[in-house]
């Protein structure tokens, strides 16, 4: 599988993503944001960090990086795009995903493990999980408070686009389980077509027991297995 990780000025999780992919058995390529083509790639990862120092709004300036026109074209033609943290913020800024990410409700920057409930397992990104499975993945953000208007929320629900919700250990969707004030405890969403996923938590940080857990590894394996199935069918 040919995987590209886009590096913006201010990205800081791209090497974590690279390492996580290596743990899963792949060797991605770094794509500098000044490049203009993602031709030939099977998956594009927009990693976490503080692209352009988060100036103006998180992801707002990165969205106009030269590479993004082709990432948008790639996404619209069905290519797999995975935005993590700042990558999610960039995906909402460029309109590939609905809504926006605001300052955390409590104003604090949050860096802590969080329980998530997997709401969808029929996606390329989540096939290895069980429906409703509770996983623990860390968050690390100041602006992760997902917001969307009533109409947008109704559309997300009607199209089954909510992929991860913040929950308590018991799996309850409550304010107690919600670290940042996100609407309906939303931690990750997918586009209607299912090929563009954005999430605030960092699965690339939990792919080995030695670094604190393996709950995130399933996403990497899911994508690889999805890709294997797809290429086998195509062959």
């Amino acid at each position: 599988m040919k995987i590209g990780i886009v590096r913006f000025p201010g990205s800081n999780c791209e090497v974590d993503c690279l390492e996580a992919w290596r743990v899963a058995g792949e060797d991605p390529v770094m794509i500098w944001h000044q490049e203009t083509s993602v031709k030939g790639y099977d998956l594009i990862v927009l990693p976490g960090g503080f692209s352009y120092g988060d100036y103006l709004r998180t992801g707002a300036i990165a969205r106009f990086s030269p590479i993004m026109d082709d990432v948008i074209r790639f996404a619209k033609s069905g290519g797999l795009v995975w935005g993590i943290c700042n990558g999610f913020q960039i995906l909402t800024e460029c309109g590939l995903l609905p809504g926006a990410l605001l300052r955390n409700a409590g104003l604090h920057f949050i860096c802590s493990p969080q329980y998530l409930r997997v709401e969808r397992t029929d996606l390329a990104f989540t096939g290895e999980y069980r429906q409703g499975q509770i996983i623990q993945i860390p968050v690390n953000h100041g602006e992760g408070n997902y917001t969307v208007d009533d109409e947008g929320l109704a559309r997300l629900k009607a199209n089954n686009q909510i992929v991860f919700r913040y929950v308590t250990l018991e799996g309850e969707v409550t304010d107690q389980g919600n670290p940042n004030g996100s609407r309906e405890n939303i931690a990750g969403i997918v586009n209607k077509e299912g090929n563009v996923l954005g999430m605030m938590p960092h699965p690339e940080r939990v792919v080995e027991e030695s670094i604190g857990g393996v709950d995130g590894k399933g996403m990497f394996i899911s994508i690889l297995k999805h890709w294997e199935r797809r290429t086998q069918h195509g062959a």
């Binding site: 103006l56 709004r57 707002a60 300036i61 106009f64 909402t92 800024e93 609905p98 809504g99 926006a100 605001l102 917001t147 969307v148 208007d149």
Partner: peptide
């Protein structure tokens, strides 16, 4: 386009 995000 840039200075505001019309969503919010």
């Amino acid at each position: 386009k840039l200075l505001s995000n019309p969503v919010i």
